[in-house]
């Protein structure tokens, strides 16, 4: 285990990147997810189709494939982002599809009477969503969203394939330099636990606080 203790700075450096990558991607995912969900429940059929297509396409692609397509493929059409930005876009877009499905289920959980009442008061569709439906919908999906956040912490490790220096990437380097992969990978597992367990506790707290008591 000495090899882990001697290189704690490497672990800390990697964890820092993993945390910022996860936070930024989750922010992007929430925005995309809400937009996608709004599309999918909107009264305009073409928008519903676009939302459904996006979710279907993303959910049927392996994450690593999306990384390769965005990293190497986009350049071929003249768009190039750095490794970290590419990772935020891919992880955000990927997780966004799942967030969208959760938000949609949350919206469906809000009784139709709520939206009908809001409409009859003269609110437009965006207003109905923003003021009446979404605040209730989001509260019901805090726990599943939290699960998605924890999955994202782990999914962010795939960014190592395009050389984003996250925890896994740093760990791989360390393992090559020291030729002691087992203690190092055990250390990495502990580091991921250090990120996921407190996240789980925090999510639980938030869930309790915002829950609608009926």
């Amino acid at each position: 285990m000495d090899v882990v203790l001697d290189n704690l700075d490497v672990f800390v450096r990697g964890m820092r990147t993993t945390v910022s990558l996860t936070m930024l991607s989750f922010g992007v995912a929430l925005v995309i997810g809400i937009v996608v969900a709004a599309f999918r429940v909107s009264p305009i059929p073409p928008l519903r189709a676009v939302g459904a297509l996006y979710v279907e396409m993303i959910q049927s692609s392996p994450l690593v494939l999306l990384f390769f397509l965005f990293y190497y493929g986009l350049t071929k059409v003249g768009i190039q982002y750095g490794e970290f930005t590419t990772a935020v876009i891919v992880l955000g877009g990927y997780t966004g599809a799942y967030v969208g499905e959760m938000v949609r289920s949350g919206i469906n959980a809000v009784s139709t009477g709520q939206a009908e009442a809001a409409r009859s008061l003269g609110l437009t569709f965006p207003q109905v969503m923003r003021v009446v439906v979404l605040p209730q919908a989001l509260r019901t999906i805090v726990a599943p969203l939290g699960g998605l956040f924890i999955a994202l912490i782990k999914n962010s490790s795939i960014a190592a394939v395009i050389a984003v220096s996250d925890l896994l990437y740093e760990i791989d380097q360390l393992s090559t330099a020291t030729a002691q992969p087992i203690p190092i990978y055990l250390g990495a597992a502990a580091a991921y636990l250090l990120l996921t367990v407190p996240s789980g506790i925090l999510i639980d707290q938030i869930d309790r606080r915002v829950a609608i008591r009926r």
Binding site: V3, E170, Q173, L174, T176, A177
Partner: peptide
Amino acid sequence: YTETPPAPTTTAAP
């Protein structure tokens, strides 16, 4: 070679 050489001092690769 007959002897295993000592491990080089290891630091993380940059």
